[in-house]
């Protein structure tokens, strides 16, 4: 995979060099700077929870979101079964095993440009991710809580409900470092 990436990187560089010689835009001193992807993330904890350690985790990070569904939906469904110790029964959002596994396998964050942006606020689901969202409780509830959200009660919340520092009301929003 790495070798293949390098090969493509070289190709891209060569392609970029040609572009450069043909480019007359003086503002762009080096338009051929290319980079190779190392990490990918959207929803929290997806790679860490659902992908076996070692090489598969790197592979997930180097899989394009457009290819993730086909590559990982079945494995995610199996993982949901394993986590529950029984065939995954579905979740409180009304999603069955295949639907939830398919949703998680394509690791993108759905973001609303018009409404409330939150991972889950009791009303809106997967419309963004705010700093204060208790994303782990949401994921635990959907993974372990069953269709009514009441199964495995000891596993559906970690009982850490907020950050250890208050967020700022203005840019850059995150609290100063410790």
């Amino acid at each position: 995979m790495k070798k293949l990436l390098k090969y493509f990187a070289t190709l891209a560089l060569i392609g970029g060099a040609f572009t450069f010689t043909a480019c007359s835009d003086d503002d762009d001193k080096d338009p051929a700077i290319t980079y190779t992807q190392e990490d990918q993330m959207a929803r929290p904890a997806i790679n860490t929870v659902f992908i076996p350690s070692g090489a598969p985790k790197d592979m997930f990070n180097e899989t394009l979101p457009s290819a993730m569904g086909a590559a990982y939906a079945t494995a995610f469904a199996t993982r949901l079964d394993a986590l529950n110790g029984v065939t995954y029964p579905g979740n409180a959002l009304g999603q069955d095993r295949a639907t939830f596994a398919g949703l998680l396998a394509t690791d993108v964050l759905n973001v609303s440009l018009t409404g409330t942006t939150t991972f889950f606020d009791g009303t809106n689901v997967l419309t963004g991710r705010a700093l204060a969202d208790d994303v782990i409780d949401t994921e635990l509830l959907l993974i372990f809580g069953g269709t009514a959200g009441t199964s495995n009660a000891g596993l559906t919340s970690d009982h850490v409900n907020a950050n250890d520092k208050a967020f700022l009301g203005t840019f850059p929003y995150l609290a100063a470092p410790f």
């Binding site: 290319t34 980079y35 190779t36 992807q37 990918q40 959207a42 979101p65 964050l109």
Partner: peptide, 16 residues
């Protein structure tokens, strides 16, 4: 950024 709903993801990329 667009209209309606968008899907986003972040990547880190090392210089070739």
């Amino acid at each position: 950024l667009g209209t309606g709903t968008i899907d986003i993801w972040a990547t880190s990329n090392r210089k070739n």
